Computed example of a mutant assay.
Amino acid sequence: MAIRRRPVNGHIVLVAAHLPIRRTPTAEESDKHKAMKERIARAAERHGLAAEVEGRSADGKVRSDVLVTGAGGRRIGWEAQYAPISASTVRRRSQAAAGAGVVPLWVTNSDRAALIDRAPWVRVDDFTWKEIASPRTMLVRAGVRHLQRWKCLRTSERPCPETGSSCGRFHAQWMLPALCLPPKPHTDVDRLVVASADGEYLPMRIPNQHDPHSCSRMRVPSGDRDQWLEIVGPGQEPEPPAAEAEDELTFTEQDLDPTCRYGDETFAFNDTRPRRGHAVGTGLHTFDDVPPRLFVIPDLPQHLDVTAAQRWAAAATQSCKPWEVGPCAGCGAPIHRYGAGSRHACESCRTQVNARYR
């Protein structure tokens, strides 16, 4: 038996409910929980990281299932959550960990878990404890996203997320790896353990576009996070949303119904948890022009001071039409600047830029 809040005639009241048994009640850890903790600790130690099962923070007040410490002192508190848990408990424990200098990271096997988007999280497949403990690859199915940027044209592979056709503007949005263009490989749990401790994957919080009181939480590559902050502008990292307000509880002062209807044939289910993990893109940001701060090669004025003969000679060298010749954005030399197969900069300037990122 349990007591649950339920809307009745427009009011939130307390009702008795028989919850369906989803797992065998036990005071001890489940085999899946123990196997996941062992896998996380094994992956960290195999790559030279310090891992402490049931590790505590420096003040001893916060305990994580597995506390992984990276080379730079970054501490990730992994929480393997296979049992039901309330949203308030997730928030309380996550805030306590963050206050102690530990970055919480919850892992679940259910897309209906209350921890989704209420704390840093990832979702994995529902493997048996033997499969979790084995060397089998365990992919992260949700909770890790990549930044996608594109110009919304009729020839774009993606439809416009705002109009459904094409708007001619620029869009940036966070997508699951399989929905990226081209698709990106899924991150497996073992790699995420190391990448999170090394700072390669960072937590990201994006306010919900339709509900200012909620947000989407995810792990993203550090490079994508830097690009996002450059797109939205310096100092525009979203602030934490306001706490979700709870519905006001109404006491009807009616007599309790002492009749137990457990086992009655009915199509009403007490546990109707909604799916919280969705595959749609999140954090849509639309802008008219590419911000100049995103240009690796500065955009020079669109002017090429050459004679007609020089333009024809450049067109023959670049294998393009004379009217497709324009100035290189880096050095101003005549290049194939416009039309199909054009470039923003010459080969020399692009080689110098690429050398900086190797």
Rank of each mutant, 00 (worst) to 15 (best):
H210P: 00
A58D: 13
V66E: 02
D289H: 15
R136E: 10
K61N: 11
S134A: 15
R5I: 09
P135T: 04
R145E: 01
N354A: 15
Y357D: 11
V102M: 09
S86I: 04
S110M: 03
A313Y: 03
S86V: 07
G77P: 00
I85M: 13
G10R: 07
E237G: 09
N208Y: 04
R337V: 06
A83P: 03
P334A: 11
T259P: 00
E29T: 01
W323D: 13
A268T: 12
T187Q: 09
D255T: 04
C167K: 08
P240H: 07
A345T: 09
V194W: 00
G281C: 11
V193S: 08
S86E: 11
C152I: 07
M175G: 04
W174E: 02
R46N: 08
M138P: 00
V15I: 10
Y338Q: 03
G341S: 13
P291R: 07
P7G: 10
A355D: 15
T187A: 09
R4L: 11
T24V: 15
W174Q: 07
A17K: 09
L67E: 03
Q318S: 15
P185L: 06
L304W: 09
I3D: 14
E162V: 14
H285R: 12
P135G: 08
L181Y: 10
G164W: 09
S64F: 00
L115T: 05
D65M: 12
E253C: 14
T259S: 08
G332W: 06
E324C: 14
G233W: 04
E28M: 12
V122Q: 00
V90K: 03
A58S: 11
E28P: 02
Q148V: 06
P104A: 02
H278V: 13
L67W: 07
P298S: 12
S88V: 14
Q302G: 01
E230V: 06
S88P: 00
Q227R: 13
L49N: 04
F267K: 13
A41H: 03
P104V: 06
T259C: 07
A315V: 09
V66N: 02
R217I: 14
D31E: 13
P240C: 01
H213W: 10
D247L: 03
L139W: 14
L202Q: 04
T286I: 07
E29R: 14
L153C: 13
S319A: 08
E230S: 11
G283H: 05
G168F: 08
R219T: 12
L249M: 10
R205F: 01
A172I: 00
R145S: 00
D59G: 02
W150S: 12
R273N: 08
L153E: 14
C328W: 10
R22T: 15
H11R: 15
P274F: 02
R141C: 11
G72H: 01
F251V: 09
R219A: 05
R275M: 08
W78S: 05
S216N: 15
P274W: 12
E253Q: 13
L14G: 09
P120V: 02
M204H: 07
H33G: 02
G199R: 11
F127I: 05
R141S: 14
L19T: 13
H11Q: 15
G263H: 06
H278F: 11
E230P: 00
E253F: 15
T266M: 06
L202W: 07
A119D: 05
Q236M: 06
L139D: 04
